[in-house]
Simulated scan of single mutants.
Amino acid sequence: MPLTITVVRHGQSESNVAFEEAFRAGRAVALERPDSEAELTPLGREQATALGRHLAAGDPPELVLCSPYRRTVRTWELVAAELGADPEVRLEPRLRDHDMGRWSGMNLLALRERFPGQEENLTARLYAGFRPPGGESYPDVADRVREVVEELRTGHAGLRILIVAHDSVVLMFKHVIEDVPIDSVEAFGPVGNASVSVWRGTRPEVFNEMGHLPGKRPR
């Protein structure tokens, strides 16, 4: 069993901002850029640097598994610049974000316009196993996270592990490690950008902690 598994979310991305602005304005948005190519914003880079300084204050990771998406890789690069350590680093495709298939890049209003009658599937059925066209359900995400956790348990005993990933992946780590029912983990969100969650064995030490970020207070 790893000594600790620390899971962090990437810093704020351009797609995060686009969705937040569309939500506030009450308008539809459908992003053209593939989800995997979303860049960090200036704030996201600042958050990643602050995250790196926070992690540098503790024991450094010995193995880093990072989602291959651009925003997670860039987050790790900025964290690494602050760590002063040289852990083994692997890009891990199983830590990619929840794949929404043909619905990728669309907010709820855009979904209503383009796929009438599908709103309930997005808001209520993803945790129950519904897959968007060409995409994944949350149990699908949980299955790939579970594979990663089992490999860490059997092959990396006693190590400090750092995971750099996405909000959906953070929630699925909670589901898998703590055996929280999958239809209950949504209540632990939203998972903040550059937040930190730490497990020692199956015991959570912190979850979704953001007190290290500019303008945030420790909880």
Rank of each mutant, 00 (worst) to 15 (best):
V79P: 08
A81L: 12
T72P: 09
R217V: 13
G192C: 06
P87L: 06
V169S: 04
E21R: 12
P116D: 01
A157H: 06
D59N: 08
Y138T: 09
E92M: 02
L65A: 04
P181K: 09
V198R: 04
D143M: 13
M210C: 15
L51W: 05
C66D: 02
G158Y: 01
A128V: 00
G135M: 05
V169Y: 05
N193S: 14
N208W: 00
G84N: 01
D167R: 06
M106Y: 03
R153C: 02
D99F: 11
H156P: 08
P116A: 03
G117P: 05
N16M: 00
P204I: 05
E82C: 15
A22R: 07
E37Y: 07
L171F: 08
T75I: 07
G211N: 12
E82P: 14
V191P: 00
D35T: 15
F19H: 13
F130R: 05
A194K: 09
A128T: 12
V148Q: 02
V64L: 04
P133F: 13
T4D: 07
E39S: 08
P204V: 07
R217A: 15
A124K: 08
L3C: 08
E186M: 12
P87V: 03
R203P: 00
T75L: 05
E21S: 11
N208Y: 01
R70C: 11
A50I: 13
E21H: 08
E205W: 11
G192S: 11
I5P: 00
L162S: 03
G26R: 08
A38S: 14
V170C: 09
V198S: 04
R160V: 08
W199E: 05
P133I: 10
R131A: 07
I182E: 11
G134Q: 12
G155Q: 11
H54Q: 12
V73L: 02
G117F: 03
A48L: 03
V89G: 04
I177H: 06
L78C: 11
G52P: 10
A22W: 10
R144L: 05
G11L: 00
Y127F: 12
V148D: 05
E151I: 14
V79W: 05
R153E: 03
R33C: 10
H98L: 00
S36R: 15
A56C: 06
D35F: 14
T72A: 07
V185L: 04
I5G: 04
V206W: 02
V29D: 02
L3I: 02
P93G: 03
M172C: 07
G58Q: 09
A165P: 06
E88I: 09
M1V: 01
H175F: 02
L171C: 05
F207I: 09
V145W: 04
E205G: 06
V149E: 05
R33S: 14
H175Q: 09
L83H: 06
L43E: 14
S36V: 15
